[in-house]
């Protein structure tokens, strides 16, 4: 399967936040959308899944224009996990996870099928959040919440998974665990996974493919080797060192801020 984004333009209050963004990604690849704050990473993920209005350009799944998809078909194809969720109205984790099955149900279907619950159970076990199901969403720590948000997206059973800063609030052990899991899921289920992120080191450690954004424009697309020392230093304004690890991967280590 192939996700193609062509000349995507998004404007907020008539300033361009995405400018002619074009790239292609394949299933089974873990793609990192990398860039400094305000580069348009979140907007790109939201524009792909039609959560924000697109001014120009289009998105194709296997050559089929996304504009021909109904909202429910989009719901089956894409799942977006952002860092935010309203938790002022009380709700349990279980109630939150249940909503993800809606695109797969009949509109007026009032109760879940056994299948729905099975899908949910599978993901809950995979992410080891069984103990959180009866907890209130508002009582979760940020690390727990982050795992729940990823679980919700996975329960939607998308073919294209869009994760916005999925590891931001996790401590290092969970961060590694979550990214390992995402990488395995992407490979085993042949997902197209896009991860928005600004951590240079993690990106160099996990990415199969990188889309480097700066001020709404694509600066580089390709394997992790496109992240050269010169390019990264120019875009992120930090001094970095590029090291080779024992598996032959280039790892980027930030050293100090440039100015």
């Amino acid at each position: 399967m192939r996700l193609a984004v062509k000349n995507l333009v998004v404007e907020y209050n008539s300033t361009k936040v995405l400018d002619e963004v074009t790239f292609e990604v394949l299933d089974g690849e873990l793609t990192f959308v990398l860039g400094p704050n305000g580069a348009g990473k979140t907007t790109l993920l939201k524009a792909i899944s039609r959560l924000v209005n697109v001014v120009g350009g289009s998105v194709y799944i296997d050559g089929k224009d996304l504009r021909n998809y109904s909202p429910r078909e989009v719901g089956k194809a894409f799942a977006y996990a952002g860092p935010q969720v309203y938790r002022v109205l009380p709700s349990t984790v279980f109630e939150f996870l249940l909503i993800s099955r809606y695109p797969h149900q009949n509109r007026l279907q009032y109760v879940e099928s056994l299948d729905d619950i099975k899908v949910l159970d599978e993901v809950v076990n995979e992410l080891n959040i069984g103990g959180l199901l009866s907890r209130k969403l508002e009582d979760l720590s940020s690390g727990e919440l982050q795992r729940v948000l990823i679980a919700r997206a996975l329960i939607q059973k998308p073919t294209i998974l869009l994760l916005d800063e999925p590891a931001a609030f996790l401590d290092i052990k969970y961060r590694i665990e979550v990214l390992d899991m995402i990488k395995n899921l992407t490979k085993n289920r042949r997902l197209i996974t896009l991860v928005a992120n600004h951590d240079l080191h993690l990106t160099s450690l996990y990415a199969d493919r990188v889309i480097l954004l700066d001020s709404g424009r694509v600066v580089a697309v390709g394997g992790p080797e496109v992240l050269t020392k010169e390019l990264v230093e120019k875009i992120f304004k930090v001094r970095v060192e590029v090291l080779k690890n024992c598996y032959g991967r280039n790892l980027i280590l930030p050293i100090r801020a440039l100015d």
Binding site: L51, I99, P103
Partner: peptide, 20 residues
């Protein structure tokens, strides 16, 4: 009821689950 269930978590959830 279902669109309300999705809506209370944020507009993003509502939209991506196929509701307006």
């Amino acid at each position: 009821v279902k669109s309300l269930n999705a809506y209370i978590y944020g507009d993003e959830y509502s939209r991506q689950l196929g509701f307006n």
